[in-house]
Design a binder for these strands. Structure first.
Lengths: 416, 416
DNA sequence: CTCTTTTTTTCGAGCCTCGAAAAAATAGTG
DNA sequence: CACTATTTTTTCGAGGCTCGAAAAAAAGAG
């Protein structure tokens, strides 16, 4: 059971609230923070002056004095960019990219490389990550705050502790201990998380009005991924990263899936499945290893142009997604949807079939709560998501907990 | 966003911890509470003497001095039965039952009636509840603490605020405002919740070792219901009680379901579906309104006795449940399962097919985490679940929040 | 009867948040 | 340009809460 609240937890939590309020709002004043947190002005004043003294927050000097009201003007608080930095890594099929990002969320430097991930040993994958991160860190050695966290977004299933890549389509190897190895190497906490979960995290920050407490991000690419936010929390499995929408069963004993099983949603709606249905008309054909985005847009163009196997393939994909969503909605009710990835460019071909399938399910009851949005480019979302995860960790676990003025890492600046 | 922690929240939360520790453990001493909550002995001492002074807890006098160690013996703390009482109501197809239960969880008085729920107007359902509760309360007017909460467990879907019965197989009417009407009538907070969720809550208290942070209770009866606990929390929909396992889609456009749609799991695994498959062999036949338990056990006996349509019907049921579980496990990983209700007596007929279906899904990966347990009698579980919900509310929301010595019920004592 | 051991209570110290009042900083006003 | 009204931020004392240490309480052991 959860443990009692000690006296020092209180400060820690309220510091976390203040930091979080500053990260969320754009340059809030102390008064605004008091309003959103419900804490008193005196408390906010104390905490924020501590945070400023510690070099975590700063007063925004040169900004617009937007108020134009009478009275003492509000002073906007910002995150101090040099308080820390983090590394966001995105590892996908045949591609690795990494960026160093400051505490305010500005990218300082980034790099991308093509790899042949499926032919590399597990160790080589780890080594490539380490090498890229090391190059980036060395390149910016002098500027910026200390790196306090590394977050990796990866295609595949990770453990619920975000330490290992349990299974991934980008490699034949299992249980790759990214977090342990990178922590050894850099002496900084590291997490590996599912890329679709990171996409969901990113959407929340991009459009907090639309994507608030409950929404679903579905990645339509070679496979089908999902990131799920329910009741304000990223939804993960109890043992793994979970939320494997693509491997819910659409038709028992149905089409052959890349995972080796049959009837998964992905086996109807993944790019390889659409291609297979359109070109081969054989649900049991071995899935292709990779397809270019152009292959898919070509299929979509053909489907838009004339009736035929292409159009039918997209219909089947939409149907599989719709029934799958209907089953999910039976569990937790409908929520706004974002379709991400190259498949989203063809979503117009699937949408009517998605909707008609949902209408045949329990989810159809509240179909007003369903809305679709599409975002073809998933890459920046993955990076933003990993970035936000890392920054939030620094906010909540590191900076909120620095009590008593003892600020070990950052060379003597605060303490006043 | 969540609000900052005020100074008085601290006491409230720690009082809640202490009460919860006493309810969970059997008669813990102050020392044990300090250990499980992580709070200091002095804090526990202060809080528990407050709670005793307020008449919420009591020292167990006549109990066994079980220790036999040296030193000052521990004094066991108990819940004071007369601190409060609650009403637990269970409303099912053609049956209404209610009980008054004291703060320690002992049933003081109970009653059950048969009703013809499907022919009653919505108002009549509410009125029957009110009448039964009123009779019970008047019967025990003098003894026991004041009624502080009423919890109703009902078949069907409720709203996420637990105020209304949105839809139910027991009546043709929708949106029945049980909570509002009963609150008006009794002046006490009331909740209506899905019965399967209450079953899950009850299992947690019956066997906290097996059913801890993650487990699934599936009710096999006329329809199929589910109560889901994930990461220690009862899982509900965002707008409704959710967790409608029975209406996940097993076969798109498949068998006719009681809900009017097609291919739901329930349309293969509900009692009416098994009966229909065994007797009529027609998936499209209109579902029967009701079946007796004997009808099902007769089918099960026949299926055990010889191969034939009965055995095949149970096979189809097991398959539907298995694929459904597999799809759920794709979302949040496998968890221990409890099959509850009359269908559980026939679970031996379904189990191999459930397992073989799961093995064909992503859930099959971690099949070691799956364990089955059966409990044929769901009625006491529903009542216990409703009881625990009500008691926990009193613990957490009412008694934990009685701060500042203002204890209306108990005459002035603490404050020192 | 005294000593040892364990539990529970008491007491002062140290934090934390809060409200009220003071200080700071600006726009309006004549 | 001095003064006033207004709004934000800081300061300060009060009140609460938890904690650790020490004291008190309540047994069994010898």
């Amino acid at each position: 059971m959860s443990v009692g609240i000690r006296h020092d937890d209180l400060r820690r939590r309220n510091r976390a609230m203040v930091i979080s309020a500053v990260r969320r709002a754009s340059q809030p004043s102390r008064t605004e923070i008091a309003a959103t947190t419900g804490l008193s002005h005196s408390t906010i004043s104390t905490i924020s002056s501590d945070l400023i003294a510690e070099g975590i927050l700063a007063e925004a000097k040169g900004s617009e004095p937007v108020s134009m009201k009478r009275g003492r003007p509000q002073v906007a608080l910002t995150l101090e960019p040099r308080a820390a930095s983090i590394v966001a890594v995105v590892l996908s099929l045949n591609s690795l990219s990494a960026a160093i990002i400051d505490y305010a969320g500005n990218t300082i430097v980034e790099d991308t490389r093509r790899l042949v991930t499926q032919r590399m040993p597990a160790e080589a994958l780890i080594d490539e990550c380490i090498a890229m991160i090391r190059r980036l860190i060395e390149g910016v050695a002098t500027s910026g705050g200390p790196v306090l966290r590394i977050a990796i977004a990866v295609q595949g299933i990770t453990d619920s502790g975000s330490r290992k890549l349990l299974w991934s389509p980008i490699t034949r190897h299992d249980d790759i201990p990214f977090a342990d190895r990178l922590e050894q190497e850099f002496g900084v906490p590291v997490t590996v998380e599912n890329d679709c979960n990171m996409i969901a995290e990113a959407l929340r920050w991009r459009d907090p009005v639309r994507y608030r407490d409950d929404f679903i991000a579905i990645l339509l690419s070679h496979g089908i991924g999902m990131g799920l936010v329910i009741k304000g929390e990223l939804f993960t499995g109890t043992q793994s990263s979970g939320a494997e929408f693509g491997h819910m069963i659409h038709r028992p004993n149905g089409a052959l899936c890349r995972c080796g099983r049959r009837g998964c949603i992905e086996a109807y709606a993944g790019n390889y499945a659409i291609w297979r249905n359109a070109k081969l008309g054989d649900e049991n054909a071995e899935p292709l290893a990779d397809l270019s985005d152009d292959d898919i847009t070509a299929l979509a163009d053909a489907a838009r142009d004339h009736d035929g196997p292409e159009r039918e393939a997209f219909r089947k994909a939409g149907e599989a997604i719709g029934f799958g969503l209907g089953s999910m909605f039976a569990l937790f009710d409908p929520a706004p949807l974002a379709f991400v990835g190259v498949g989203a460019t063809a979503f117009d071909l699937m949408e009517p079939h998605v909707l008609s399938a949902i209408a045949k399910t329990a989810g159809g009851l509240h179909s007003k709560a369903i809305s679709f949005d599409t975002e073809p480019n998933e890459v920046p979302l993955k990076r933003e998501g990993a970035m936000m995860r890392a920054l939030l960790h620094v906010d909540q676990e590191i900076f909120a907990a620095r009590l008593g003025g003892a600020t070990p890492a950052s060379a003597g600046k605060n303490v006043a």
